Amino acid sequence: MTIRFAAAGCTFVLALALTGCSDSTKKEFGLEANPPDAFQVGTQAPLALPPELSQLPAPNPGEPRPQQENAAQAGAEVLDPENALVAAPSTLSAGGQALLQEAGPTPPNNIRAEINQNALVASKPAGFVSSLMGNGPTPPPTVNAPAEQRRLQENEALGQPVTQGATPQDSNANSGFLNRLANFF
């Protein structure tokens, strides 16, 4: 009976000691996963036989296979910034030229900075005085749905296309408290 308690106690102490081991010990005992290094994993080149066996090169024992590449070197080449910045082809195919012509004119060089500036101005909230005066950024107008429905029905009754006539819109501009107060009197 005491031998069982002693064996159970030793097992418990050993299990407790193993949980406190370093990562390398845990990996050795299989308590922690040991995944392969992604840059060291490579696929083996497929076996291929030439049409005639006399064309095979003589084997060189101890040397790496000539068709097998070093996975670590291939990974380093892929991640090299110089390889990522490959120059665009200098000549375009006829299809590429036709696509560029259909895309329209070339945008100005500073278009990205201009768009960012406009977005910054539009997203900036109006100040206190501007909100009182109603001088803040005006939201885009919305379509006046009943008037648009009437316009579409009139165009249909007259046999005109739906694009005939202007789309009625409501302005969403806020007049501001002081402007409404001034218009009240």
Rank of each mutant, 00 (worst) to 15 (best):
A98I: 01
P66W: 08
G104C: 08
A98M: 09
N110L: 06
Q73Y: 02
N118E: 12
A119L: 15
A84H: 02
N110R: 08
A76V: 03
L120E: 06
S131F: 07
P59W: 05
A119D: 11
Q68R: 00
V129I: 13
Q117D: 10
A71I: 00
L79R: 13
E82F: 04
P50L: 13
G134F: 09
P50T: 14
Q40R: 01
N109Y: 04
Q101N: 15
V129W: 09
Q40P: 01
E77T: 09
P108W: 07
T43D: 06
A76T: 07
A74E: 03
G134Q: 02
E52C: 04
T43V: 07
Q68E: 15
N70A: 04
N60K: 14
Q44N: 03
G96E: 15
E82T: 07
Q55M: 10
A72E: 03
S54W: 01
N109Q: 13
G134K: 09
D80E: 10
V129F: 10
A94V: 10
L49D: 06
T91S: 10
N110Y: 05
A94W: 03
T91V: 04
A103S: 09
L56E: 05
I111K: 06
L79W: 03
N118L: 15
I115E: 05
L79H: 02
L79K: 11
I111L: 13
G75Q: 10
A113R: 09
S130K: 09
E69I: 04
L47I: 14
Q73N: 06
G62V: 03
E82W: 00
Q55G: 07
S123P: 03
L92D: 14
N70D: 15
S90K: 13
A122W: 07
P125N: 08
A103Q: 03
G42L: 07
L120H: 00
A119V: 11
S90M: 03
N135C: 05
A119E: 08
E63R: 12
R65Q: 15
L99N: 10
R112H: 04
T91L: 06
A94E: 14
N135S: 15
E52M: 03
P81Y: 08
I115M: 06
L56R: 06
A113H: 04
E63H: 13
L53P: 04
L56V: 14
A98R: 15
A76D: 08
T91Y: 00
V86E: 06
A94N: 03
A84R: 08
L99C: 01
Q67M: 05
A98P: 05
Q44W: 00
P51R: 11
V121L: 15
G96M: 15
L132K: 05
V41K: 01
F128G: 02
L79C: 08
F128S: 07
R65A: 15
N135A: 06
A84C: 07
S130W: 01
Q40D: 11
L56Y: 05
A87H: 05
L92I: 00
N118V: 12
R112C: 03
V41I: 14
N70M: 04
A122I: 00
N118S: 11
R112A: 09
E82G: 12
T43I: 01
A119H: 09
N70P: 13
Q67N: 15
E52R: 14
A72P: 00
P107D: 10
P46G: 13
E69H: 02
A84Q: 15
A58K: 11
A119M: 14
F128H: 06
A122Y: 09
E82N: 10
N60A: 13
